[in-house]
Computed example of a mutant assay.
Amino acid sequence: MFFLDVQGTLISDVDKSLIFGAKELIDFLNANNLTYVIITNNTKKLDFLEILRQKGLNIKDNAYLDPFYILKTLFKPCKVAAFGANEFLQSLEMLGFKLDFKNPELVLIASFDDFKFNDFASIIEMIKNGVKVVAMHESSIYKKDNKSYPGVGSIMAMLKNAIHFEYDVVGKPSVIFYNEALKLLKMQNQNARFEDIKIISDDFKGDLLKAKELNMKTFLVLSGKLNNTKGIDVSILDGVYPSVLEILKEEQCLI
Rank of each mutant, 00 (worst) to 15 (best):
V170M: 03
D66H: 11
C78M: 01
P104M: 00
A82L: 00
M126Y: 08
A162G: 06
P104Q: 01
V133A: 09
Y142C: 05
L108C: 02
A63P: 00
F68L: 05
L74G: 02
S91M: 12
A135I: 06
E105Y: 02
E125C: 00
C78F: 00
A82W: 04
E93D: 09
F101K: 01
M126V: 05
I163F: 09
Y149C: 07
K128Y: 06
G130W: 00
F117I: 13
E105A: 04
F115W: 15
N129F: 04
S148Y: 11
K132N: 07
N161V: 02
F115Y: 15
A121M: 11
M94I: 13
S174H: 09
S148M: 10
G84Y: 13
M136C: 07
A81F: 00
E166L: 13
M156D: 04
G96V: 01
L95Q: 02
K79A: 02
K144Y: 14
L159W: 10
H164E: 08
Y142H: 04
F117K: 10
S154F: 06
S139W: 07
I109F: 08
S154K: 10
N118S: 15
G96N: 01
L65E: 06
K147G: 06
F75Y: 15
K116M: 15
F177M: 13
N146L: 13
M126C: 05
K132H: 13
A82G: 06
N103D: 10
N118Q: 14
A162Q: 06
M156A: 04
C78V: 03
D100M: 04
T73R: 14
L71S: 08
A135L: 09
A63H: 00
Y142V: 02
K172L: 10
M158Q: 11
V80F: 11
P150H: 06
H137W: 01
M94P: 02
S91G: 10
V170K: 03
E105S: 07
M156E: 05
P150F: 07
Y69E: 05
V80W: 08
F165G: 09
E166I: 08
V169S: 15
F97I: 05
L74I: 05
A82V: 03
S91W: 13
N146D: 15
P77M: 01
A121P: 01
A110W: 00
N146Q: 13
F117G: 08
E87T: 15
N86C: 08
A85P: 08
K143Y: 05
H164Q: 07
D119S: 09
G84P: 14
I109H: 13
T73Q: 14
F177V: 07
I123M: 11
L71T: 11
Y69G: 01
V131Y: 07
P67H: 04
V175I: 15
K102M: 13
V133T: 11
Y64S: 02
S148E: 10
D66A: 14
M136H: 06
D145A: 14
G153L: 08
M158C: 14
